[in-house]
Amino acid sequence: MSSIETTMLPVLQAVLSGILVGGVYGLLSIGLSLAFGVMRIVNFAHGDLVMYGMYVGVVASTLLGIDPLLALPASFVLMAILGALQYRIVFRRFVGHTTLNQLLAAIGLGLALQMAAQLVFGVDARSAPSMFAGSYDLVGPFFFARAQIVAFLVAGVATIAVELLLRKTQWGKAVRAVADNIEAAEIVGLRSQRINLTAFALSCGLAGIAGTIMVTYYPTDPTKGFTLMPIAIIATTIGGLGSVGGAFLGGIFCGVIQQTTAMLWNSALQDVPLYFLLLVFIAYRPTGLFGQRSE
């Protein structure tokens, strides 16, 4: 083996693993991006719904004794309902522009969700291995955890489904019309509040799916959602706010950065470059985050 190969192979391995992990980051970012793109809501509680999605997997696996992957539909539905409630009670009044009050409301909601999780599930880390746990696949010189391959596939399929839903269905067109011009949407007869509610519910349902597949290879605790938020925010910002495909690619970008950092530097510091990127974005591209929508 040449020396180039010996140094490059591990890096390539990290990049490929990063793509797999990043697919799931992409999925959790899509929901965030959807809520922002359609309603201008920056949902800081989004990560906490991902955390609840993770606990749905834990409950399925430890309490009910079923594979967490089989709990995916239930996780989607439960988080969508939770999201719809959040919209009705809190976010409905903030549609249209991101305000400080909206951000504070979302952060407060997130903290409440975290505390509730702590009361119910305790502070210890929990995991929910799926039937693929512990299996590895060798592809040429690279190896992959099968649970991560499955997670990536689920994330990819969900992303494509959301994109098709938005592009092709009458509901998706209505969501895009409301995002585009809410007043015009109303005067052609679209019930903007109802449409926003369903879009928000979808965004939260996606968080549930992301959480449940993530917990098959990554343990959770009540603070997990909060620690995932920087990744989701960076992914949506890089991917172009409001763009589903962009957020997915942004998630993959984050995954790759994270895994290569872990490989070349230190896995305890794998998120540091992402936090740094987040600071750079807030400092130099604040409009990318809260201002104009880039298509």
Binding site: R176, A179, D180, E183
Partner: peptide, 8 residues
């Protein structure tokens, strides 16, 4: 001002 859906 028409107010059509510009992105559709």
């Amino acid at each position: 001002g028409r107010q059509i859906f510009a992105n559709l």
